[in-house]
Write a protein that binds this DNA or RNA. Sequence first.
DNA 1: TTACAAAAATACTAAACGGTATCTTTTATG
DNA 2: CATAAAAGATACCGTTTAGTATTTTTGTAA
Lengths: 196, 196
Amino acid sequence: MKKAEATRLNILHKAFELIYVKGYQTTSIDDIIATTQVTKGAFYYHFKSKDDMGLAIINDILKPTFANSLVKPLQNDKNPLDSIYNLMYNLLMENEFLKVEFGCPASNLTQEMTPWHANFSKVLDELTKEWIETMTAIIEKGKKSGFISKDVNARQVTMFIMSSYWGIRNFGKLENSKKAYLSYLKELKNYLNVLK
Amino acid sequence: MKKAEATRLNILHKAFELIYVKGYQTTSIDDIIATTQVTKGAFYYHFKSKDDMGLAIINDILKPTFANSLVKPLQNDKNPLDSIYNLMYNLLMENEFLKVEFGCPASNLTQEMTPWHANFSKVLDELTKEWIETMTAIIEKGKKSGFISKDVNARQVTMFIMSSYWGIRNFGKLENSKKAYLSYLKELKNYLNVLK
DNA sequence: TTACAAAAATACTAAACGGTATCTTTTATG
DNA sequence: CATAAAAGATACCGTTTAGTATTTTTGTAA
């Protein structure tokens, strides 16, 4: 029971790495079993199809990571504008797992799988919604506690910021350099400042 | 001579459509020759490989379209802030070629092919650079003519705006709805206003 | 009309793909 | 320790992939 769970998690983690780097469609099951040292029989014992595994990656790996690294940090500081900036700074400049040349795993999957794989779209949408709701909530809170002007539309601002984050990830990928991140972060700071 | 050129362009256009909708890797040559009613012999007479055709799509189809629809409109209005907003509005809300559920063709290709296909990255980077340079230039011009505050960093603002555009395309794709576009456009307007 | 190259059609290959059937080994529990 | 079920290994299937080799048709200039 325990060994099996370890094998399953091993497959999920290694497959996640491969998919983050190469994309879902171009990562073959043969690739996965080669890097995990797991046979095809074992693979299909744990997952009934490649897509079944793909969904498990999102639900069991990506979602918890997302909650820890993208959602939770938003609720740390008193000032939501600081929370947002610090989150972005950490994600772009310091997070050792996310690599500039491979972009954002969630964004990559969204781009690749939507709109053709409804199940993928659904769980990815859930993932994103959680982030949106949290950011919207802390902005609303910030309005009440005076950190943010009453004039700002929380949801609107959230969409704008998150869009810019996903977009700059694509830029970083294209230029394969964190330079783009730096000027992005500066302008993000300017933008956040006018929300006061 | 003329007929051959027509065949070639037919392949490029149809293939572009397929790739925009399904992605490059998942669009097979058999898919392409099926929808173009062109045989494989004809296909390989015009292109020496699939990648050769892919690059031709970017150079011969995407680049001119990009120059016409994304770059040129930036230089229309006197006020660069208006140019930028109007461009985004048109791209997101009115452009009949770009579909919300399939995102932005250039962004899709970047996400899918970078960093694994150096040739693709290169031409896509050229494409993007042209857009960046143009937007940066009109912002600088706007600073001189008084439409924009001298304090703004043109390149920084350009990166921020373009990132947000690419990002919101991803959002639209995920939610398969232009609703996201609307609140994005509102906040973009707010942001542009503070650059005055 | 003939000659000849450009263009297109046809038939094929070798490798890779996701997935299955069958068999063997581990592991937990009476 | 016996036994059944869980877990994993191996060989293979049918299909699809990008690409090639060969042949046929078409346009055009002498």
